[in-house]
Simulated assay, not measured.
Amino acid sequence: MNGKARIVIADDHVVLRVGLRSFLEEQETLPIEVVGEAGDGHQAIALVERTRPDLLLLDLSMEGLGGLETIIELRRRESRVPILVLTQHAESVILRRALEAGANGYILKSARGEELVSALRAVARGGTYIDPTLAGTLVSRALGDAQPASEDEAYAGLTPREQQVLKLVAEGLSNKEIAVALDVAVKTVMAHRANLMDKLGIRNRSKLIRFAMRMGLITDQEQL
């Protein structure tokens, strides 16, 4: 990487993107040029393919195409852009999924500014970076010492839209009815449904309903 690091920022909060851009472009230790901003995964993919940045700074919880799905799609398209996840999710299961999907780094939004710059530098140069508060958990899992992810962690790993679809499926709505309720295409509902079931490791609707009940999304009465 020569000269300025060319970065695309993807986050569905405009104020956060503006603040990040201002902060990053003021850095002297790592000259940065923000070449694009995206509010969802589809925009992020288009920007990456058009601008060929040195790094994608990516949030996970975005409406539409979420962060995990964006990583998977970019890698499916054989994009080699380094990806640094910037998120509020400190759950180990989400960290693991992001890395398995193809992310090169993972840092929490609560990190200090200098930590973010260090993460950007490491990932932009072809390395990896894991938020120090999560690195111990990752090592423990690699050694087999950590406990399996809880159901709460698994639920937290779903995107907001997947959580909506889960609730509506558990309430008994068909894919077509969910599509109408959310004002999206039936194929989109089917994709969200497949993604959330894969993330939860659930293969049938009855188990999905029981999971939703344990999460407090529905009650026994709603299934009568």
Rank of each mutant, 00 (worst) to 15 (best):
G39S: 08
L20Y: 12
A38K: 00
G39E: 11
E37N: 13
G19Q: 09
Q27L: 13
P31T: 09
I32E: 04
D12L: 10
F23V: 12
E37H: 07
G19N: 12
E37Y: 06
E25S: 06
G39H: 02
L16D: 00
A44H: 13
S22I: 12
A44P: 04
D40Q: 02
L30Q: 14
T29Q: 07
V35F: 00
Q43D: 13
A38Y: 01
A44K: 12
I45N: 05
P31Q: 11
G41D: 10
H42G: 01
L20Q: 05
T29Y: 01
L16N: 05
P31A: 04
I45R: 08
H42I: 03
H13T: 00
D12F: 10
G36Q: 10
T29R: 15
A38M: 05
Q43M: 11
G36N: 13
A38I: 02
D40Y: 03
V18D: 00
E37R: 01
V18C: 02
G36T: 06
G39T: 00
L30R: 07
V15D: 10
G39N: 02
S22T: 15
R17G: 13
Q27F: 05
I45W: 08
H42L: 14
A38Q: 02
D40L: 00
F23Y: 14
L24Q: 09
H13M: 01
F23W: 08
A44T: 09
F23P: 14
E37L: 15
